[in-house]
Simulated assay, not measured.
Amino acid sequence: MMKSRIKIGMVCHGIRPMELISIDELEPNFTLKAGDVGLFMVTEIGKNKMIQTVSRSATLIPGDLIMGAFGNRYATNQFEGYIPDDLKGEFHMLGGAGVIGEVKSMHQRLDEIGPTKVELVGLYTDERGQISNTISQKEQKLIPFTGDLAKRTKVVLSLGSAMDSGKTTTAAFLINGLTKKGHTAAYIKLTGTAYPKDANLAFDLGACEAIDFSRYGYPSTYLVSEEKLLSLYETLLRDVLKKRPDYVIIEIADGILQRETKMLLKNPKFMSSIHQVVFSAGDSLSAVNGVQTLKSWGIQATALAGLFTASPLLVQEVRECLDENNDHSYLPILNLEQLSMGEFPDYLRTMQLLSA
């Protein structure tokens, strides 16, 4: 087996495995943890036809050897998957960066193709002889949450009604507009499943720094504790503040009802560190109901954006509904062109005048 031919998933970046051990060599009571690193053989190609390495996307074919890390995933338009209890049998690629687990459910559109299937060849050990783990090798670098760092910039949350509602694109075009207005803006993806596409888009559109949770070894943030999420937020914020950005755009994956997203939004200490909230939605009903749900949690959206803004009729529906409630009559609806032209800071000034 040639080590040079192993395709290493991005989630394992920086891992220096010492030895590969088989399942039979493990302790009888061994239990997998998020971040445990293994060598896998691809047995069947499904949804993931490539694996994202540090430098590029590498094509997969049956028989390929890949290095990946076990993790959980919550993705309403793709897979729900978990770290397996049994090390034997068939596993699945939950994410293109090399996140491995067992699929519990999937979106109906994936029923025919299914996930890419893999078999575990063995687990890697580290220099201490322990199972190599992406999280344990980096989480000691996390700092406790205080909320103080957010006072050095303006933190803007990019939230969405659901997966693929447009929040990533909103965040990136917001950054583009801010840079055109002479501001500096950094991007952080705080929750989700490891993959570089979102951070890359933000960087391409002008972010002075664009990073995500995988920097500290997390294959995903699904089922991570609230305390760890807050520490991750503080640490990632510390990292981007080295660039001294005027704004930091934080994207939280999936919709506002998802576990980690809802957990953060209902945390008073986290929300007290947030300057503004931009809410993206896929249609008019989710836009209106999303604003109302956030308000019921004590959160006032600053602007609406997302996929629905591509349709003038949907925008009209939302505006008519919001105008019926004087509390939301001022709420701006920004399409991608308006975000990219830098209109968001102008609305911030308007909001401040209205609240003065």
Rank of each mutant, 00 (worst) to 15 (best):
S231H: 05
A186Q: 05
I249F: 09
N48S: 13
A207S: 10
L336E: 04
L26S: 10
S340C: 07
R215M: 05
K197N: 15
L353T: 03
Y218Q: 08
M2C: 13
Q338D: 08
E102Y: 08
S57W: 13
I113M: 06
L348A: 04
L257R: 03
A34F: 12
L32I: 12
I299K: 00
A301T: 12
K228I: 06
T76S: 10
N48F: 11
A171S: 09
S4P: 15
G35K: 06
L229C: 00
G89A: 02
G114F: 04
K33H: 12
S311E: 05
G96L: 05
S132Q: 06
G282Q: 00
E112V: 08
N326W: 15
A97K: 08
R238G: 10
Y124W: 10
R128C: 03
L334T: 06
M50H: 14
Q258F: 12
M341K: 06
G14N: 06
Q338L: 07
T31Y: 15
N133W: 10
G101V: 03
S225A: 03
G96K: 05
V318F: 13
K138M: 14
H183R: 07
R56L: 14
N326H: 13
G101A: 09
K189Y: 10
S161E: 13
M41A: 14
L157I: 13
A194V: 12
F213H: 00
I143R: 01
H92E: 10
A310V: 01
I333R: 04
G166T: 01
K242F: 14
D246K: 12
G177R: 02
T116H: 02
V240F: 05
V277W: 04
F91A: 07
F213C: 04
N200K: 13
Y124K: 00
M18E: 13
H183K: 00
G282P: 08
S105A: 01
L230N: 04
L307E: 00
S105I: 03
